[in-house]
C-alpha cells in the first residue's frame, strides 16, 4: 500500500509538468497582449513596453517557461498581471469556496442519485422507476446555466430567507449554509441524473447475483438484503464515476460561480483567461489537473475500502 502511494505520488510529477507546459505554451500562442489588455487604451506605448519588459514577456517563450519553472520549484508561482497580487494569494483566497461548493454539490449528487437509483432498481419498470428515469434524463439534459437561473427564479424569489446569490458567511454559519443551497443544487443535480442511472444499473446487476438470491431464500429481510448485501457491492462503479466526475464538478463550478456570484476560483479563472493573465491561468489549471489526479487516486483507495478483495499493490 505504501509503495503504491509513493508510486502514484511520483507519477503526479510528470503529469503536472506536462500540463504546465501545455498551458504555458497554449496561452501564449493565443492572440492578445495581456499588458495592453490590463493597462487599457489610455496607457502610452512606452508604458506598455516598460511593463512588458518588466514581466519578461519580451523574452522567447521557452526562456519564459524555464524562468517560470525555476521560480515555481522555489515556491514562487508569480504574480497576477491584472491584479498585481501573488497568484497563490489570489487562488488561496478562493479555492476554499470552490471546494465547499464542489463537495456540497457532490453530497447533493450522491444523496439524490443513490436514493433514486436504489428505488428504481428495487421497483424496476414500476411507475416510480419510470418517473425516476424521466427525471434523471431531465436533469442530465439541463444546461447548468439555465438550471441555475431557473432555480434562482423559482425558489429563491419565492422562499423567504433563501439567498439569491453571493458567498455569505463561513461554511459553518447559518448564513454560509443557506447561501450554498442553490449553487450546490445547480451543480449537483445534473450529475445526479448520471449517477442515478448508474446506481440503478449497478444495483440491478448485483440484485441478480446468486448470493443475493441465496440471502433472500434464507428469509433475510428485503431491506437487509438490499442495504447490507447488495448496496455495498454496487458501489464500485459509482466510486469510479465519483473519481471521474469530481474534477468535472470542480471545473463545472466556473459557470455556477458566475451565475450565483459565488466568490470562488472559477470566476477568477474566467476573468484571467479573458485578460490573458498567464500566471493566474497557469496556477488554476494546475490546481484543476491536481484535482483530476487526486480524484483518480482517491477512487483507487476507495475501491479497497469498498471491496477488501481489491489490493492496491
Amino acid at each position: 500500500m505504501v509503495g503504491y502511494l509513493v508510486r502514484r505520488t511520483l507519477l503526479m510529477i510528470p503529469v503536472l509538468l506536462g500540463v504546465s507546459m501545455i498551458i504555458f505554451f497554449s496561452m501564449r500562442l493565443a492572440p492578445g497582449d495581456p499588458v495592453r489588455q490590463i493597462l487599457g487604451p489610455l496607457a502610452s506605448q512606452q508604458k506598455v513596453n516598460e511593463v512588458r519588459n518588466e514581466l519578461g514577456l519580451n523574452k522567447p517563450i521557452y526562456i519564459q517557461y524555464a524562468i517560470w519553472l525555476k521560480n515555481a520549484l522555489h515556491g514562487d508561482l508569480g504574480s497576477s498581471i491584472a491584479n498585481h497580487a501573488p497568484t497563490l494569494q489570489l487562488v488561496g483566497e478562493r479555492i476554499g469556496r470552490t471546494l465547499e461548493l464542489t463537495l456540497a454539490a457532490l453530497v447533493v449528487t450522491l444523496v439524490v442519485a443513490l436514493v433514486a437509483g436504489i428505488i428504481s432498481a428495487v421497483r424496476q419498470y414500476s411507475i416510480l422507476d419510470n418517473t425516476v428515469t424521466v427525471f434523471a434524463l431531465f436533469w442530465l439534459s439541463m444546461p447548468t446555466f439555465w438550471l441555475g437561473l431557473m432555480l434562482m427564479l423559482l425558489l429563491a424569489v419565492h422562499i423567504p430567507g433563501l439567498p439569491i446569490s453571493g458567498g455569505g458567511g463561513p461554511l459553518w454559519s447559518w448564513d454560509g449554509l443557506v447561501h450554498l443551497i442553490l449553487p450546490a443544487l445547480t451543480l449537483g443535480l445534473p450529475q445526479a441524473g448520471t449517477f442515478a442511472r448508474l446506481a440503478r444499473s449497478s444495483m440491478l446487476d448485483v440484485l441478480l447475483q446468486d448470493y443475493v438470491t441465496t440471502a433472500r431464500s434464507k428469509g433475510i429481510r428485503e431491506s437487509t438484503v438490499i442495504f447490507k448485501h447488495a448496496f455495498r457491492n454496487s458501489l464500485i462503479p459509482i466510486l469510479t464515476m465519483i473519481g471521474l466526475q469530481l474534477p468535472w464538478l470542480f471545473g463545472g463550478s466556473v459557470i455556477v460561480e458566475t451565475v450565483f456570484s459565488w466568490p470562488g476560483m472559477g470566476r477568477l479563472l474566467t476573468s484571467a483567461i479573458f485578460d490573458r493573465d498567464y500566471p493566474v491561468v497557469q496556477v488554476i489549471a494546475l490546481v484543476y489537473s491536481l484535482a483530476v489526479v487526486l480524484g483518480n487516486f482517491m477512487t483507487d483507495i476507495a475501491y479497497s475500502v469498498a471491496d477488501p478483495r481489491v489490493r492496491l499493490n
Partner: peptide, 14 residues
C-alpha cells in the same frame, strides 16, 4: 454580481 439576470433578481427580490 457579474451576471445581469442575477443582479436584477437580487434587486427585485434580494
Amino acid at each position: 454580481i457579474p451576471e445581469a439576470v442575477t443582479e436584477v433578481a437580487e434587486l427585485q427580490h434580494g
